[in-house]
């Protein structure tokens, strides 16, 4: 596990300023809940951390490793951040069995069966 640090994150969708200079530290082992009215940026924050959205400014660190450096336009690939995410819609692949859904990530990572 590791500590996640978000520093001075700004995220715009077009002219819509969603995340306004967000600073957040999630310590190792924390159980954290984001609470707020709809549209306040909870999901966007998660998507920024997971790497599905690219913030326009700011840095993100996982322990000492930098995964986002907006000034240098550096955004680590989502798969290489060692995170996982459950979507609001669950995003289960409807054409696969439960087994295949679970196994998909392992197959992609080429984890041996035994």
């Amino acid at each position: 596990m590791s500590r996640i640090v978000l520093s001075e994150i700004n995220k715009y969708y077009g002219s819509n300023h969603v995340l306004k200079n967000l600073n957040l530290v999630v310590e190792d082992g924390d159980f954290m809940t984001l609470l707020g009215p709809s549209g306040c940026g909870k999901t966007t924050t998660l998507r920024v951390i997971a790497g599905l959205e690219k913030p326009q400014t700011g840095n993100i660190f996982m322990d000492e490793r930098e995964v986002v450096n907006a000034k240098e336009r550096f955004y680590e690939d989502p798969a290489k951040r060692g995170l996982n995410l459950v979507f609001q819609s669950y995003a289960l692949w409807p054409h696969m069995t439960v087994f295949d859904n679970v196994a998909f990530g392992l197959k992609v990572e080429k984890v041996p069966k035994a």
Partner: peptide, 24 residues
């Protein structure tokens, strides 16, 4: 819990490399 959601950057930040235009 040491949660900070504020306008101030957290104090104990890991340091970013110095800015490089080439890397950008």
């Amino acid at each position: 819990m040491q949660v900070q959601v504020s306008a101030q950057p957290p104090s104990n930040l890991p340091q970013s490399r110095p800015y490089s235009r080439w890397r950008k």
